[in-house]
Amino acid sequence: MEILSNKKVRSYGHIRHDEISKLIRSIRSHGEPFNVTNMLLSYTSSVTARAAFGGMLKEQDTLISFMKIGVAFAGGFELADLYPSLKFLQILSWNKHQLLKMRRKLDSILDVMLNEHKHKLAREKRDNGELVSENIVDVPLQKQQSEDLDVPITDDDIKATIFDMFMAGTETSSTTFDWAMTELMRNP
Rank of each mutant, 00 (worst) to 15 (best):
L110E: 09
H117K: 00
L89E: 07
K96R: 00
F88Q: 11
P84F: 00
L99I: 13
S93I: 04
A122W: 12
R103Y: 10
H117S: 01
K101C: 02
R123W: 14
L82I: 06
W94L: 07
S85V: 12
I91M: 13
M113Y: 12
E124F: 12
V112D: 10
H97C: 02
N115L: 08
K125Q: 10
S93L: 06
L86S: 13
E116R: 01
E124L: 03
H119T: 15
K96D: 02
L121K: 00
R104E: 08
Y83G: 03
R123F: 04
K125C: 06
F88R: 10
L79S: 03
S85N: 10
N95E: 07
L110S: 07
N95L: 05
K87T: 07
N115G: 15
R103K: 11
K101S: 12
K105Q: 12
W94T: 07
L92M: 04
Q98I: 07
R103V: 07
E124N: 15
R104K: 14
R103P: 06
E124H: 09
E116V: 02
H117F: 07
H97G: 12
F88T: 12
N115V: 12
D111C: 03
N95Y: 15
E116Y: 01
I109T: 01
L100M: 11
K101P: 07
N95W: 08
A122N: 15
K87L: 11
S85L: 10
Q98K: 14
K96M: 00
L99S: 04
L89W: 06
N115Q: 13
M102G: 02
K87H: 08
F88I: 10
K101L: 12
W94K: 11
K105R: 01
L99E: 13
M113V: 14
S93N: 15
W94D: 04
H97P: 10
W94N: 07
Q98A: 06
M113P: 08
R104I: 05
K87G: 11
K118S: 05
L114H: 03
L114D: 08
L114E: 15
I109K: 00
D107A: 04
A80Y: 01
L121C: 09
N115I: 09
I91N: 06
D107V: 00
D107P: 00
L121N: 15
L89A: 02
K101R: 10
R103F: 10
S108K: 09
L121I: 11
K101W: 06
L92P: 00
Q98N: 06
M102K: 02
D111M: 03
M113I: 14
P84K: 03
S85Y: 15
Q98M: 11
L99V: 14
N115F: 14
H97L: 10
N115Y: 13
R103H: 10
L86K: 10
H97T: 05
A122D: 15
R103W: 14
W94E: 04
H97E: 04
S108C: 11
L79V: 05
H119S: 03
L99C: 09
A122M: 09
E124P: 04
Q90V: 05
